[in-house]
Amino acid sequence: MTGKNIKVLIAKPGLDGHDRGAKVIARGLKEAGMEVVYTGLRQTPAQIVRAALQEDVDVIGLSILSGAHQELFPVIMDELEEAGLEDILVLAGGTIPDSDHQELKEIGIKEIFKPGTPIKEIVEFIEKELAE
């Protein structure tokens, strides 16, 4: 695996405190050679976008389990665009019903990973997307 020089922001929008998934992914991406910025719990859209901007990341991974994704993700995507960061690859994971996937993809979230997705699959997805 060659995650070399790929910089990823793992962010938890919303108020839920379940960061097991976010941390496992952060660790997995690090072990695949990526530089992972982890911002911790309870991040507002503004904080996430500012971090993405200042850190100049290639990828943002959003993890949310509270169910507030449909409220918060559009705000994040809008603010990313406003900041001129629409070229960042945005991925999501957590408790997100199938029926919401289409809508989220339409606002620019490239892929939604279900709980239980192997880390390798996520690493490969990122590498493939960035290589294009």
């Binding site: 660790r27 690090k30 072990e31 695949a32 050679g33 982890y38 911790g40 904080q47």
Partner: peptide, 16 residues
């Protein structure tokens, strides 16, 4: 990390 060449950058957590 010496092994993977990756890194976990966690200081922003405290700079909310």
């Amino acid at each position: 990390s010496e092994f993977s060449g990756g890194a976990l950058l966690g200081d922003r957590i405290r700079m909310d």
